[in-house]
């Protein structure tokens, strides 16, 4: 089943390799860029959803304290809060779930296309969907003196290729910093603690991947991270939102929710917590004010 994703991407990568003068690095960069652009609406939706969930945290915390002895009531109240705010608690996961196979596919496509052993090349025979690409095999896999099919560690690659894992770590960290919403410094906040842990572990882990995987995959990591960083530069994000995201202009939170987000965490906010479900249909409390997505979007 994975081959349905891998094989078109291997073919596309090989085709781009031919288009860009048999330069595999340019082909990797262009393909990564294309994929990131195509999946941008999903990325944006996921980030908006995460952001909205973050904004609801104070109110959720208040509910948890209030109903700490009644789990059933707590669940009901939480659902009511989500409904009124027009937030789907899983809204951040669905776009990610769709993107995940595509990104893995891209990653694996690079691995397959850079085949460097007899077994890998035999395997490639079932992956190229355009027969005209046969004559390009094997792809030229050296760049700046580095063998892209080998790990960056000497002696298989020059010492300077060790800069790549460092770049992978740096760009992973930077991307994480830019894309994760600001969290409260409150140490009890589980989400904040998790974000802090991820912010530390992820760059180290991807740096370790880059050390043991091939140089070609490090180039993919770096390109993907850099594109991710650029996507979140406010001017670029606004531009991309205007092209790819419906209702990109409607960013400002609704008054009711503004009240929630600006209130002290423990302070009750009757406007939100006690509003009956039907209130969600009024323009002021609908999800429209959150910049699109979820339930409210459909209502329009």
């Amino acid at each position: 089943m994975w081959d349905l994703i891998f094989n078109p991407l291997v073919t596309l990568l090989t085709w781009l390799y031919a288009i860009f003068g048999n330069n595999i690095v340019v082909a990797i960069v262009v393909l990564t860029l294309l994929i990131r652009i195509v999946t941008y609406p999903l990325t944006a939706q996921q980030m908006n959803s995460t952001k909205r969930m973050q904004e609801l945290q104070p109110e959720l915390k208040r509910l948890q304290e209030k109903y700490k002895d009644d789990r059933e009531k707590l669940a009901q109240e939480q659902m009511a809060l989500y409904r009124e705010a027009g937030v789907n608690p899983l809204g951040g996961c669905f776009p990610l779930l769709i993107q995940f196979p595509i990104l893995i596919g891209l990653y694996q496509a690079i691995f397959y296309a850079l085949a460097s052993t007899p077994y890998q090349l035999v395997d490639l025979s079932e992956r190229l969907l355009l027969p005209t690409l046969d004559s390009l095999i094997p792809l030229q896999n050296t760049w700046l003196g580095m063998n892209l099919t080998q790990p960056p560690t000497p002696p298989v690659n020059p010492t300077y290729s060790l800069a790549l894992p460092v770049l992978v770590m740096a760009t992973t960290w930077l991307q994480f910093k830019m894309t994760m919403p600001k969290t409260s410094p409150d140490a009890n906040d589980q989400a904040a603690a998790m974000n802090r842990s991820m912010g530390t572990i992820m760059p180290v882990m991807f740096g370790a991947f880059a050390l043991s995987f091939s140089v070609g995959l490090s180039i993919y990591f770096i390109t993907s991270n850099v594109i991710g960083i650029v996507q979140y530069v406010p001017a670029v994000k606004r531009f991309l939102d205007s092209i790819f995201v419906r209702d990109a202009g409607a960013k400002k939170p609704a008054p009711a929710l503004q009240a929630v987000t600006s209130s002290a965490p423990a302070k009750p906010t009757p406007a939100v917590t006690r509003t009956p479900a039907k209130t969600a249909k009024t323009p002021a409390s609908s999800g429209k004010s959150y910049g699109g997505g979820g339930k409210s979007k459909k209502k329009r």
Binding site: Q108, P118, Y119, Q190, A191, M194, I201, F209, L217
Partner: peptide, 26 residues
């Protein structure tokens, strides 16, 4: 808990992204 969750998540990502460990030759 959060540390554990992060580790599990990263292991999942790592496993999915790891290149297929196919052999060298026959």
């Amino acid at each position: 808990w959060s540390f554990g969750l992060v580790l599990v998540l990263l292991l999942l990502v790592g496993t999915a992204c790891a290149p297929s460990r196919i052999g060298v030759s026959w």
